[in-house]
């Protein structure tokens, strides 16, 4: 125990004090950093997860801007009741391209991790404009201002920034970002390239108008949520943690 009584050495000698501080930081740093070396092993190997299409990405930015995460989580926990209600529990792999992820920690509204495809575009639009129109008891605010057109002049920069932090956007995806954005909403016959670049992306205008609106972006994002992985092809043993 006597070593613990030697703190006077550290307190009176600036060299030992500096060495001591350095040691503390090294140990603390290692404890924080080293586990991250194996972070890849926490992400399940499943097929189908792709980076968001430019439209979905813009929708995700609106989701964050409007603070949807304050009331809606995107994390189905591995509990029986949650799986019964919302569907397969969320995988780390499903949010690996989310920066930042939208797991959330509070559910005033329902979880949205698998809301994609659950309701029609038309329902989503009506519900976002005024939730009481379709769900009489809802306390969600209306978002009628999302009917305005989407400002997406900087969408390439968004893709580029994400690619810097590890989202595998290809050069082709980045150069075509604006074109893909408009095409996903407006084109009657979208060229096959966009469907290949972003499989399962919802095509067509949610609003039924001839411009790209914020509503289109948000609905496209909601409709892709939780639909990328085909769980009929996933071996439960392989994703067990």
């Amino acid at each position: 125990m006597s070593i613990f009584k030697q703190h006077k050495v550290f307190e009176t000698n600036v060299f030992f004090l500096a060495v001591g501080i350095l040691l503390c930081i090294i140990v603390g740093g290692l404890v924080e950093v080293v586990p991250l070396f194996s972070i890849e092993s926490t992400i399940e190997k499943v097929q189908g997860v792709r980076p968001y299409s430019p439209l979905e990405l813009a929708g995700r930015n609106i989701y964050i801007r409007e603070g949807c995460y304050n009331c809606h989580s995107q994390m189905i926990r591995p509990f029986k009741d949650e799986v019964e209600r919302y569907g397969h529990y969320s995988l780390a792999a499903e949010s690996m391209y989310d920066h930042p992820f939208q797991w959330g920690s509070k559910r005033t509204g329902p979880d949205l991790a698998r809301v994609g495809g659950k309701f029609t575009n038309e329902w989503q639009v009506r519900h976002l404009i005024n939730p009481r129109d379709v769900v009489p008891g809802s306390i969600m605010p209306g978002y009628p201002h999302l009917k305005r057109s989407l400002d997406y002049g900087d969408i390439e920069a968004h893709l580029k920034a994400l690619s810097v932090v590890g989202v595998p956007y290809t050069a082709e995806q980045i150069t075509n970002a604006k074109k893909d954005m408009a095409e996903q909403v407006l084109s009657e016959a979208p060229d096959a390239a966009i469907a290949k670049r972003y499989p399962k992306a919802r095509m067509g205008s949610a609003m039924g108008t001839d411009k790209v609106t914020e509503m289109d972006a948000l609905v496209a994002y909601l409709q892709i949520l939780g639909t990328m992985v085909d769980f009929t092809k996933v071996n439960p043993e392989a994703i067990r943690r």
Binding site: V34, P35, F37, S38, S41, P78, F79, K80, V83, Y89, P236, I239, R240, R241
Partner: peptide
Amino acid sequence: PAWPTPNGFTKGMLNYSSRGSLDEDL
């Protein structure tokens, strides 16, 4: 299960898994 290892994590002697226990519940 407790400590991260290069290829995953220490499984622990009870071999508990929250997802496995969910599968059993279901």
